[in-house]
Design a protein around this nucleic acid. Structure first.
Length: 597
RNA sequence: GCGUCCGUAGCUCAAUUGGAUAGAGUGAUGGGCUUCGAACCCAUAGGUUGGGGGUUCAACUCCCUCCGGACGCGCCA
């Protein structure tokens, strides 16, 4: 009788067996060594391989191949694999038995988490993402943080962590001083009490104010002064600020809803929230921890290892000479709040790569004075900066409109949906109107998100409607189409047959079935990796792989016209699991699926 | 000047964080629909991983150096 652990991934299972073998072969001291189990990248090497023998050889003082042989001799995995083979310098190649594969895949087919082992110790994880400057409309510059952060948050939640979303909006800085100063100077300080401002007003307003800010030094000084007054609690300034802020937040929420991002108003904890803590932060850093010093009228922190242009020490300025606070101050206050009040054990900052230096300084400061330490548990929170590159236009420069402005997210999404609509119209003109609209919405938005997420975060990427909406290649429409095809089989299959009975087992006979089963079993491994390295493109490339593997199965293995009932039932189950996995995988990316398209 | 990231097929990108003969898509060429959705699939061609050196049993990956690019570097965020 096979012993199957339904919630354990293949690699975990193999790792355990290898470690048992290490202990038997080399002694107890070796039982915790990482067996370096990897999915084989070439089918000739089997399904999985262990690369441990080469490294271990040095420690033990034996030849790699001989080490591999000793491991294999002590390995008991004949329930899972065929006899392991040793190849090359000492690779141990493993080929899964199809009986075991069938057993394992059958257990996953009815598992809600698709074989994923929920986190043994759920953590409190803060994910800080999106964080737009809300004085103006959201634009492309906010796109990547918003959708990458959302994917990370969804993925961590899926494995069972407690995710606390934090939208650190810019609602308190110079740009607001600028707006308020401009408002007062054009309409007088009373306008906020009577005026009826809309976002379109604010948009035009922002442009004018910004223009004046740049061209008029006196005005710029007054705008900065306005920030100080706002931060000091001036009533008129506060009222104006509230009007601007509420309008802007409403607009942001529209974008989040359109984008299908799980942020809402309760996740907003902007710069203004931390205002009341800032004097205390400066005071503590200055007087308690004594890491900050006054320098040229400003309060600065000088840390070792941070150098400015001329090799002089590079400060973090936490209070300007005019008494105003800066984003470093706010970020330190936020970090402390997240650790102490929210109980974060891991804090993930999703911002663009240009801010690496800033976060290095913030993290270093926090770690130096112990603000990353939870007072109750005495555990340090893991501070992680998830960076990403810029969105470029087809000219290779940061994406702008023809007139040189930032592309508004609203316009960008509308354009994507419009283009998706015309494709739907072309491919499936007979669908009812409301369904077409639904499909176009999901395909258009999904395409934008997928194009971004499928890129390796760290590099810049070129934005192209044509490429993201292409039906062929590694795109959202392709995956959604793959999903729709599977659903189509299920629809047809259930016309003749009420239900796939729950007791059915999957059997693996055809190579294409085996390939599909193995791919499906890897879902949990991929997710586990992403939890660690926070790289959404591992999910996209997995899903694309899965779709292609399914296509191979689809071409070679008739489902509804299978040779016998048992095969048909087994294949229907494989289809069902494929559909679930695609749907769940896309859901982690915040992309909706449609049954027909 | 210093620092960070990057340079991979004509183009757009991967490469399980040091593993085997560097893979996909697109474009090109040639095939496959009277059978579950052809928005699909299969095959072929395409590479000195920017150059050079080093570490290692093993380097796209780590170190050094040069070339080319993006982005940072005291009171913006």
């Amino acid at each position: 009788m096979l012993e199957v652990y339904p919630m354990t991934s293949i690699t975990n299972e193999l790792e355990t067996r290898f470690q048992q073998a290490f202990e038997r072969a080399f002694g107890e001291a070796f039982s915790a060594i990482d067996p370096m189990i990897r999915a084989a990248q070439d089918a000739r090497f089997g399904d999985y391989q262990s690369n441990v023998a080469m490294g271990l050889a040095k420690k033990i003082g034996d030849k790699p191949r001989s080490v591999a042989e000793r491991i294999v001799a002590n390995l008991s995995i004949d329930d899972i694999c065929e006899t392991p083979e040793i190849a090359g310098p000492g690779f141990i190649n493993l080929r899964l038995k199809s009986t075991w594969l069938a057993e394992k895949i059958s257990s996953i087919a009815i598992d809600e988490k698709l074989g994923l082992e929920p986190a043994r110790e759920p953590m409190k994880i803060v994910v800080d993402y999106s964080g737009p400057n809300i004085a103006k409309q959201m634009h492309v510059g906010h796109l990547r943080s918003t959708i990458i952060g959302d994917t990370i948050a969804r993925t961590l939640a899926f494995v069972g962590h407690q995710v606390i979303r934090q939208n650190h909006v810019g609602d308190w800085g110079t740009q607001f001083g600028m707006l308020i100063a401009y408002l007062f100077e054009t309409f007088g300080t009373e306008a906020v009490n009577t005026g009826n401002l809309h976002i379109s007003d604010i948009e035009a307003f922002y442009k004018q104010a910004n223009e004046k800010f740049r061209s008029d030094e006196d005005f710029a000084r007054r705008a900065r002064q306005q920030v100080v007054e706002l931060q000091a609690g001036d009533q008129n300034a506060l009222r104006a600020w509230e009007v601007f802020r509420n309008e802007s937040l409403k607009h942001c929420q529209e974008i989040y809803d359109r984008l299908g991002v799980m942020l809402n108003i309760s996740d907003v904890r902007g710069e203004s929230f931390y205002n009341e803590f800032l004097p205390g932060v400066v005071d503590e850093l200055l007087n308690n921890h004594k890491v900050a010093v006054e320098d040229q009228g400003a309060v600065c922190i000088f840390l070792e290892g941070f150098k400015a242009k001329d090799d002089s020490p590079l400060p973090i300025i936490i209070r300007k000479s005019d008494g105003g606070y800066l984003y470093a101050t706010t970020d330190l206050a936020a970090l402390r709040y997240r650790v102490r009040e929210l109980g974060a054990q891991r804090i993930i900052y999703v911002t663009d790569a240009r801010q690496v230096l800033h976060f290095q300084q913030i993290f270093a400061t926090a770690q130096k004075i112990g603000w990353d330490m939870n007072p109750a548990t005495q555990q340090r929170a893991s501070l992680e900066h998830v960076t990403f590159g810029s969105v470029l236009g087809e000219d290779g420069k940061p994406l702008k409109t023809r007139s040189g402005e930032n592309v508004k997210l609203k316009d960008l999404l509308e354009e994507a949906v419009l283009r998706a609509r015309s494709v739907v119209e072309q491919k499936n003109p007979e669908l009812p109107e409301d369904q077409k609209r639904d499909i176009a919405g999901k395909v258009g938005i999904g395409a934008v998100k997928y194009a971004d997420l499928s890129q390796n975060r760290t590099s810049d990427y070129t934005f192209s409607y044509d490429k993201m909406l292409a039906m062929e290649g590694n795109t959202a429409p392709y995956l959604m189409y793959a999903y729709a095809r599977v659903k189509s089989i299920q629809r047809k299959g259930q016309i003749n047959e009420k239900e796939t009975s729950a007791g059915e087992k999957i059997t693996i006979a055809h190579p294409a079935e085996a390939a599909l089963a193995k791919k499906l079993l890897q879902f949990s491994e991929i997710i586990e990796e992403v939890v660690k390295n926070l790289r959404p493109n591992m999910i996209t490339s997995y899903l694309f792989d899965l779709s292609q593997t399914f296509s191979g199965f689809y071409e070679n293995c008739p489902v509804l016209k299978a040779e016998d009932d048992a095969t048909r039932a087994s294949r229907l189950l494989l289809c069902d699991l494929t559909a679930k996995t695609l749907k769940q995988g896309l859901a982690l990316l915040g992309i909706s699926t449609v049954e027909q398209m």
